[in-house]
Design a protein around this nucleic acid. Structure first.
Length: 766
RNA sequence: GGGCAUUUAGCUCAGUUGGUUAGAGCGCUACAUUGACAUUGUAGAGGUCACAGAUUCGAAUUCUGUAUUGCCCA
């Protein structure tokens, strides 16, 4: 017991430390553990309460027995998998009829010692002569009845089924229905007991081999064939599950779960992503009683005391003293003392304490003080694999004990898998050590890496590369900060027009992204929100904005632009803070003097949307294309950035006139003119319906230029063809909405205009 | 066997009510380097939207069937 507590404190502590290092923002003064005395107290009360309400009962049930751990498992802890085995055909003699046989097919010949009937389909004519007769169990010659039930699948095996109520769930139900005897032939550890005769004390799989051999030598084995069937194994020990009759404690779920189903379906509790509502509903509509007892020595003991051998000679009470009282009353034996009582050895399923979490973490079963303030909570973040173990049951407990939902949203994260797609687990040892990862990539880097691949409800294929990407991003931010710090600000420096325009644009972009983020956070699309922020910072802020306002080397910066840039940086830090709390907080304190802890970024308000200029945002796209064209041209013709160029333009629709000064700055243009006609001896390109010309300063690769133009013409011609296909289709023109048709016509005329420009360029090049 | 999902670029994923020749990040390829950042920059290649049918002027998107992978239940 002491060892268990040591383990708990050590590993619980490690997990908390890892969370702190990762920057989880929690109230670390108030951690709770379900074994804490106060918490435990509420769990016991709940058990007693549900027992008194008549919802907890004790019953013989077929449970999934793990012979290695020697414990009963819940349905959810058993993993069914296809496994290769043998299907044995064994013949049983018909009693009182010499040399009459019937043959059954079984995968588990060792259980024949526990057979208590043979079952055939009532309408199966092959066996109608056997109705009401008896059969002899091979090797022991015990007499068992031949019964009929339409449960039997006539197509499977021989159409005869051996019934072993103690060792098969279906047989158990069949046994109950036909009042058959139940013969349990196994011990708790999976060895054969005294019922197994000569096979006693053999392991069940050894017994199988031995019995097969004996059946063969006694002429009972007709044949055997390869067969794949579903085998249940323990999630933890991998032992083959043995169905076993056992007295267990059950919680009746049918009535309890009704509000929990209803309020997920009506959206009181929202699931993210919503697709999980389907399987939740399916489970809740077919909910089975919850086996709440476990045969473990670590956990909450079941508060039940036995005072006799009879099945109902027990009481449920909170303390031993109360149990004595209750036992005296129930049994009518006033002489009973604590010595006559024996507390149930079983403990409660751990989920039986966890399901009270949203209430009992605030001592809510005992005191209203905190729970009435905090309950219901906002968001639960958890894994879909424990939707039934935990989420559903918390909701059930919430409605039962507070009459209200425990939380408003459930965000299901993915299961973390390694590169091979395997689930990360302690037993496989394939989970990376978070501390090592954080040392390598930084806590923020690890966070970004994880969050980048966390689309709601999908698995997280973990790859260190993603953490590397996170670290690179952190580095990028840091370098952008260093750049702003390197600027010398001179109050007399006038603000360039290009900077003023860039500020307007950047402000609009931030506004636009804030709007996107609002929607993404509302839908728990965290990786998309992160990616939108990532691109805002890397592409818009670093690659475009900072390049646009960067002063010429050695020159000072004007104060208006500088101040605006600091404000943008602060907005960006606020946006990134949920993803990268450490670095953003650090820069927050460097970028402007903050005196008190109240000014910390982690409690700063989310940025206000600064407003936007949609026309400027729209012009920025063609602007980027023009910049890109000029960069490509420089590259292809080896014209260095230092060498300035003249640009002539024939503006068409969407020409980014507001960004002309930005274009001059970014592309190092010596002049930007509106050209009247064609510009002879020039390199050219088309963006939208505007054409641009750069007179040759140096030699241009004419052939490469022509190939490029040809490629673009091919594309446009293909594009035109597809539009023409639509427009020449009379039914399209008559059926499609006017707007759509108009759009197609516009596309057509734009494409034709562009094609003309390209054609004339081509002919200019000869 | 039943139910629910999934299938879009090499990888991980977006793609709202059907309407630009389907997008992003990473990866890949080529080129670039004194000036925030090679943990970088610029450019480029890369997809028969699993398959087959149906509905529609028009389908990645709707319907049917098949296959695939996964989860749940038996």
């Amino acid at each position: 017991m002491e060892h268990a507590w040591d383990w708990t404190h050590e590993h619980g502590g490690v997990i908390l430390e890892q969370l702190k290092k990762l920057g989880a923002s929690c109230d670390w003064e108030r951690t709770r553990f379900t074994m804490d005395e106060k918490y435990y107290d509420g769990v016991v009360d709940t058990f007693i309460d549900l027992f008194n309400k008549g919802l907890i009962y004790r019953g013989v049930r077929m449970v999934h027995w793990d012979p290695i751990a020697q414990t009963a498992l819940s349905d959810e802890e058993v993993i069914h998998k296809e496994e290769n085995g043998q299907l044995y055909y064994v013949r049983y003699a018909v009693a009182d009829a010499s040399d009459k046989w019937l043959t059954i097919a079984t995968t588990r010949p060792e259980t024949i010692m526990g057979d208590t009937a043979i079952c055939v389909h009532p309408d199966d004519e092959r066996f109608s002569h056997l109705h009401g007769k008896e059969a002899l169990v091979p090797l022991s010659n015990r007499r068992i009845p031949i019964i009929t039930d339409d449960y039997v699948d006539r197509e499977f095996g021989t159409g005869c089924l051996k019934v072993t109520p103690a060792h098969d769930v279906n047989d158990y139900d069949l046994g109950k229905k036909h009042s058959l005897e139940t013969i349990d032939i196994f011990n708790a550890d999976g060895t054969v007991n005294a019922q197994g005769g000569t096979y006693e004390s053999m392991d069940r799989f050894d017994a199988r081999k031995a019995i097969v051999k004996d059946l063969e030598s006694h002429g009972h084995m007709v044949k055997s064939e390869d067969y794949t069937n579903k085998v249940g194994r323990s999630e933890r020990t991998d032992a083959v599950i043995e169905p076993r009759l056992s007295l267990q404690w059950f919680l009746s779920m049918k009535e309890l779960s009704k509000p929990a189903l209803e309020h997920v379906m009506d959206g009181t509790i929202a699931f993210h992503p919503p697709k999980f509502k389907n399987s939740y509903r399916h489970w809740m509509e077919n909910v089975k009683d919850w086996c709440v007892s476990r045969q473990l020595w670590w956990g909450h003991r079941i508060p039940a005391w036995f005072y006799g051998e009879e099945e109902d000679a027990f009481v449920v009470a909170k303390t031993e003293a109360e149990a004595v009282e209750a036992a005296r009353v129930k049994s009518g034996r006033s002489e009973l003392t604590a010595l006559d009582l024996k507390q149930d050895e079983d403990v409660m399923d751990t989920w039986f304490s966890s399901w009270l979490w949203p209430i009992q973490v605030f001592d809510g079963l005992k005191s209203e003080e905190e729970v009435s303030y905090y309950y219901p909570t906002a968001d639960l973040v958890t894994a879909p694999e424990i939707m039934f173990f935990w989420v559903a049951r918390m909701i059930i407990a919430g409605y039962e004990y507070r009459g209200q939902e425990p939380f408003k949203n459930v965000y299901y994260t993915g299961i973390v898998r390694d590169k091979q797609g395997r689930k990360m687990s302690k037993s496989l040892g394939n989970s990376p050590d978070p501390i090592t990862l954080m040392e390598q990539f930084g806590a923020d880097g690890v966070r970004v890496g994880m969050l980048l691949t966390s689309p709601a409800g999908n698995d997280l294929p973990f790859d260190e590369k993603l953490c590397e990407q996170g670290r690179n991003f952190a580095n990028k931010i840091w370098n952008a900060f260093r750049l702003t710090q390197s600027w010398e600000v001179n109050a007399d420096q006038p603000q360039p027009v290009s900077s003023a325009t860039s500020i307007l644009w950047m402000r609009s972009r931030i506004d636009e992204v804030l709007t996107d983020l609002e929607g993404q956070f509302a839908e728990f699309r965290l990786s998309e929100a992160l990616m939108a922020s990532y691109r805002l910072v890397w592409d818009d802020f670093c690659s475009w904005y900072l390049e646009l306002i960067k002063p010429v080397y050695g020159q000072p910066m004007d104060p208006i632009t500088y101040d605006a840039t600091v404000v943008f940086f602060e907005d960006i830090l606020k946006i990134l803070h949920p993803f990268m709390p450490f670095q953003t907080e650090e820069i927050w304190h460097w970028i402007r003097e903050r005196k008190s802890p109240e000014e910390a970024l982690c409690i700063a308000p989310w940025p206000d949307a600064p407003g936007r200029d949609d026309s400027l945002l729209a012009q920025f796209e063609p602007f980027k294309q023009v910049v890109s064209e000029i960069r490509t041209m420089r590259k292809e013709n080896q014209i260095p950035q230092k060498e300035s160029l003249a640009l002539h333009v024939q503006p068409g629709d969407g020409y980014p006139v507001a960004l002309e000064s930005a274009l001059i700055k970014l592309c190092n243009l010596s002049e930007l003119n509106q050209a009247e006609g064609k510009v002879a001896n020039s390199f050219g390109f088309v963006v939208g319906t505007s054409s641009y010309f750069i007179p040759f300063g140096t030699a241009v690769d004419v052939e490469a230029e022509k190939a490029k133009i040809q490629k673009e013409m091919d594309y446009i011609e293909g594009f035109l063809k597809s539009i023409l296909g639509k427009l020449s289709n009379e039914r399209f023109v008559s059926s499609a909405p006017e707007q759509v048709v108009a759009m197609e016509r516009k596309k057509q005329s734009d494409a034709l205009a562009k094609l003309d420009i390209l054609k004339s360029k081509m002919s200019d090049l000869g």
